[in-house]
């Protein structure tokens, strides 16, 4: 058996818990158009930690799935690709938000019963 410290175990498992939440957070934030780096900063400031090398490919994948729409903005000094949620993306966001609340309620019930 390989034992790692409790802290490390929590960190690893928490990472798995967070994995699915990045999509929901992106869809929620992208009501307003935003470019990659700024979105990353906003997410991290909001406590949703995600790496660039995960977020940027994820944005493209969501665009390919039709949940996001992108547009190049060349007005500023540096051309940037702005993403925003499509109509389909907004519907998916609402569905995911419901799922999230259900899940949070279930976990809350479970953890209050056991402690």
């Amino acid at each position: 058996m390989l034992f790692v410290g409790t802290e490390e175990t929590i960190l690893n498992l928490a990472q798995e818990l967070r994995r699915g939440t990045v999509v929901l957070a992106c869809l929620a934030l992208l009501d307003e158009p935003q470019y990659g780096y700024a979105l990353l900063e906003t997410l991290n400031d909001a406590g949703i930690t995600v790496d660039g090398n995960t977020l940027y490919p994820l944005l493209r994948r969501l665009e390919k799935q039709g949940l996001l729409i992108s547009e190049w903005n060349t007005e500023e000094s540096r051309p940037r690709k702005f993403y925003r949620a499509s109509d389909e993306g907004s519907r998916v966001r609402d569905g995911l938000t419901r799922e999230w609340h259900d899940l949070a309620a279930s976990i809350a019930r479970l953890t209050t019963e056991t402690t």
């Binding site: 470019y35 990659g36 780096y37 900063e41 660039g52 493209r60 540096r78 940037r80």
Partner: peptide, 16 residues
């Protein structure tokens, strides 16, 4: 497209 976006992102991040 990916190349342009990567360049912008790397530049944005480096600037910050």
């Amino acid at each position: 497209d990916v190349a342009d976006e990567l360049r912008a992102t790397i530049a944005d991040t480096a600037e910050a």
